[in-house]
């Protein structure tokens, strides 16, 4: 089937448009009327789906401009008569001594640093698995792949007790260190290195006297750049969206990532309805932030997705 032993290099660096045109099956000629009907139906379904996927985003962006009262008294999919986005934003930033910005910064540190280290370690490991032969290699690889199948929630609880015995819980490290492991990154790094790093290049570098580690750092890693970016992105989003790990590990609100902070505010809604605007505006800002990052880097996602698709 499509499963090939040596998948083609995942296609991130290529412009996706290059693959379109000729591949796309043209609607069969003849019967123009039914073809036209067909494409209208297709567009209708796609538009409907687009409305569905955008609905919560549109709602939260509009709601971020409303006062707590208007949130309940005005129609959710249109502006209120007295928009107050500026006031909401400044309340968001000022609440609890600027906690929101701190949480956003924490999220950036957890996700940025975690994903960067995860990328370096898993790419090196994947590269070595692709290039070198040693006993137990496939067993090691299979074990790492097993990690992909393990639900993260199952790891988090025992990890808490484990880190508790060494006194790490409650610190930045308790979230940062576990976030640096990306089994999927090893998988992606291996299949990418297998196809994108030519043997001749490595041999030539060896003849020039370069050490093995240096070959990886200066030559191979450059050839693996699209895979590196993809690993980084996947891990960044995974860490940013992970809720359970910081929930069990952290107790000091100053170390919270933004997801944990927002649920903290959400739990105070019953006590003080003003927290509605804080939660809504905070959700809008943090959702918008990551969606922006993702969409602008969208083409890099294709490398990982193509790789996953061919290996199945």
């Amino acid at each position: 089937m499509v499963t090939t032993q040596a998948p083609r290099p995942p296609q991130a660096p290529r412009d996706p448009r290059a693959t379109r045109g000729p591949r796309r099956p043209r609607p069969p000629a003849g019967t123009p009327r039914t073809a036209w009907l067909g494409s209208t139906a297709v567009m209708a379904v796609l538009m409907l789906a687009a409305v569905y996927f955008m609905l919560p985003m549109v709602w939260v962006l509009l709601s971020a401009t409303k006062s707590p009262g208007d949130l309940f008294s005005t129609f959710g999919l249109w502006f209120s008569d007295s928009p107050q986005l500026g006031a909401n934003l400044s309340r968001l930033m000022g609440q609890d001594g600027g906690a929101f910005l701190r949480w956003l910064g924490n999220s950036l540190v957890y996700s940025g640093v975690g994903a960067l280290v995860a990328m370096a370690m898993s790419a090196a490991c994947g590269y070595a698995l692709a290039i070198y032969q040693f006993r137990g290699k496939e067993l090691l690889f299979a074990t790492i792949l097993g990690g992909v199948l393990m639900p993260a929630t199952v790891i988090a609880l025992p990890l808490y007790f484990l880190l508790n015995t060494v006194g790490l819980t409650g610190t930045y490290w308790s979230v940062l260190l576990p976030s640096m492991v990306s089994p999927f990154g090893v998988y992606l790094g291996r299949i990418y290195a297998t196809s994108a790093v030519p043997e001749e290049v490595i041999e030539a570098a060896r003849l020039d006297g370069a050490g093995e580690v240096r070959i990886f750092l200066t030559i191979a890693s450059r050839m693996m750049t699209p895979a590196l970016v993809t690993i980084f992105l996947f891990q960044f989003v995974a860490i940013w969206n992970n809720y359970l790990l910081p929930l069990v590990m952290l107790n000091d609100t100053r170390t919270f990532p933004v997801t944990l902070g927002l649920t903290l505010w959400n739990s105070q809604i019953q006590r003080d309805p003003n927290f509605y605007t804080l939660v809504v505006t905070g959700s809008a800002v943090s959702a918008l932030f990551l969606v922006g990052v993702m969409v602008s880097l969208q083409r890099f996602w294709r490398a990982g997705l193509t790789a996953g698709a061919t290996k199945g």
Binding site: A49, A50, F53, M54, P56, M57, V237, W240, N241, Y243, T259, S286, A287, L290, V291, V293, M294, V295, Q298, W301
Partner: peptide, 8 residues
Amino acid sequence: FFMPYGVP
């Protein structure tokens, strides 16, 4: 369609 993937 992909956008919500970025929303925690």
